[in-house]
Every structure is written in structure tokens, then in C-alpha cells.
């Protein structure tokens, strides 16, 4: 076996997969912007993707905020900079950890769920049935999910930002002898609108990636339970990789 050939095959395979996903995502966007919009489906997805993700987002955020405060305290103590805990916690949470961790958690919860649901519909011919009932699966199934994830993820991240800062606050005040009022004043004086906006822009993009990748993998699944399982795994791995890569690109774009 020629190693160069297999590297080449792998590369071509990856590029064509990216191409197929891009075309699918484009079709999903077109479906979002062309009527009819299935409002009932959209609201149901907002509930499923947005509201029902609140617990997992809240728990993640409070622990990350708390751990962050401890780490920054220990690190800062090495050059007498312990007082910067609130500043760095709020910066870290709003610009990076809030959106990225929310994105990763929802890649597991939402992307996998969408891939499994649409994948099962594919292998049991429900998607074919929908087409024969004069209803476009892109408009009925995919557009409401993509739109709901893109719009609700920024809201979830805003909640995560607040809870994450609270996590840091609780540890700082209870274990690290910070004054509560001073901690909060430092947080609010330091954080700028652009930090929060950067996080929310990321969240919207991640929401789109999560729903589109889940739908893409599910829509193209085949081969029964095995195929649906594979689609679910690919959806989670695919959206995590894409989230981390796009996160860097957005950050680099905003920093410049």
C-alpha cells in the first residue's frame, strides 16, 4: 500500500466532505429565508434546543467560573496579582469559555439529538414520506432547527456568562477572602461591550454549526441502527472540531 496515495485519498475525502457540508448548509440557509416558515416547529425547537439546555449550560458555567477563579488566584499569587481574579474571570468567560463550552456541551446534547432524530427518520423512510406529502424536509425539519439553534445559543451564552461570573464570585468571596462588592465592581468596570459581543457572535455561529452538522449527518445517514449511530458520532465529532477551528478564526478576526 502506497502511503502517499492513502494520504491523498484521505485529503480528497475530507475536502469533498467539507464541500458537501457547505452545500448542505447553504441549502439550509436558503430554506430559512424562503417561505413557508413552520412557526410551530420553530417554537418547539426553541424550547427543545434553548430552554431545555439551560440546566446543562448553567451547571457547566458555574463550575468553570469557580475553577477559573481558583486557578487565576493561584497563578496570580506568583507575581502578587491576586486582585485581578474578577477581571480575568469575566474576560475569560465572556470572550472564550462561555461560548466555547456552551458550544461543546450543545454539540453533545443538540447536534447528537438532531442527527439521531433526522437519521432515524431517514432510515425509516419518514423523510421520503414527507417529500411525497408535498412538504420540503429542508423547510419543515432542518430550517426550524438551524434557526432555533442560531438564535437561542447567544441567549444561552448570555446566561452562561452571568452564571460563570457568579461561580467565580462565590469562590472568590467564600474561599479567597475577596470583598463581594469590590469583586462585582471590578468585574463590571473591567468588562467591555465588545467582550460580550464577541462571545455572542461566536455563540450564534456555533449554534448554526451544531444544528447544521447534526442535520447534515442525519439527513445523509443510511444502513439502519448502525448508520444512525455513525451519524450521531460524526455529528458530535464534526461539530466539535468545526467549533474549535471557527472559534480561533473569529477570535483572530476580532483581535485584528
Amino acid at each position: 500500500m502506497n502511503p502517499f496515495a492513502s494520504i491523498g485519498r484521505g485529503t480528497i475525502g475530507m475536502l469533498s466532505e467539507i464541500g458537501r457540508f457547505s452545500a448542505f448548509a447553504g441549502r439550509a440557509i436558503a430554506a430559512v429565508f424562503s417561505p413557508p416558515l413552520f412557526l410551530g416547529q420553530f417554537l418547539r425547537q426553541c424550547w427543545q434546543i434553548g430552554y431545555l439546555s439551560l440546566p446543562v449550560i448553567g451547571i457547566t458555567a458555574v463550575f468553570i467560573g469557580a475553577a477559573l477563579a481558583l486557578n487565576i488566584y493561584v497563578g496570580g499569587a506568583r507575581f502578587n496579582a491576586e486582585q485581578f481574579v474578577p477581571n480575568i474571570v469575566v474576560l475569560g468567560i465572556t470572550r472564550e469559555l462561555g461560548p466555547v463550552l456552551a458550544g461543546l456541551m450543545l454539540a453533545g446534547r443538540v447536534s447528537a439529538g438532531i442527527a439521531a432524530e433526522i437519521g432515524t427518520m431517514r432510515v425509516t423512510e419518514q423523510i421520503d414520506a414527507m417529500t411525497t406529502l408535498s412538504t420540503d424536509p429542508f423547510r419543515y425539519l432542518i430550517a426550524p432547527r438551524v434557526l432555533a439553534a442560531t438564535l437561542t445559543l447567544p441567549v444561552l451564552v448570555l446566561v452562561a456568562d452571568i452564571i460563570g461570573v457568579m461561580g467565580g464570585y462565590l469562590v472568590a468571596v467564600n474561599s479567597l477572602d475577596f470583598n463581594g462588592a469590590t469583586y462585582l465592581r471590578n468585574t463590571f468596570d473591567f468588562v467591555e461591550a465588545q467582550d460580550v459581543i464577541l462571545g455572542l457572535v461566536k455563540a450564534g455561529v456555533f449554534g448554526f454549526i451544531i444544528a447544521a452538522m447534526g442535520a447534515y449527518q442525519g439527513y445523509h445517514s443510511s444502513g439502519g441502527a448502525l448508520g444512525v449511530g455513525r451519524a450521531t458520532t460524526n455529528a458530535v465529532v464534526g461539530s466539535i472540531v468545526l467549533i474549535l477551528a471557527v472559534n480561533y478564526l473569529i477570535t483572530a478576526f476580532f483581535v485584528e
Binding site: M121, T124, E125, Q126, D128, A129, M130, L133, S134, T135
Partner: peptide, 23 residues
């Protein structure tokens, strides 16, 4: 369809009326 291909998230009547409601 062979397996019926009914939408399992909808009730029986919503399945039957799917085309009427959505299209």
C-alpha cells in the same frame, strides 16, 4: 410506504392530515 413511515413525533390524525396542514 413499506414500514408505514408514519411520523412518530405526531399523533395519528396529524400524520394522516400532514399534507392538508403543511402543504
Amino acid at each position: 410506504f413499506q414500514g408505514g413511515a408514519l411520523f412518530d413525533s405526531l399523533s395519528v390524525w396529524e400524520n394522516i392530515a400532514f399534507r392538508l396542514i403543511n402543504a
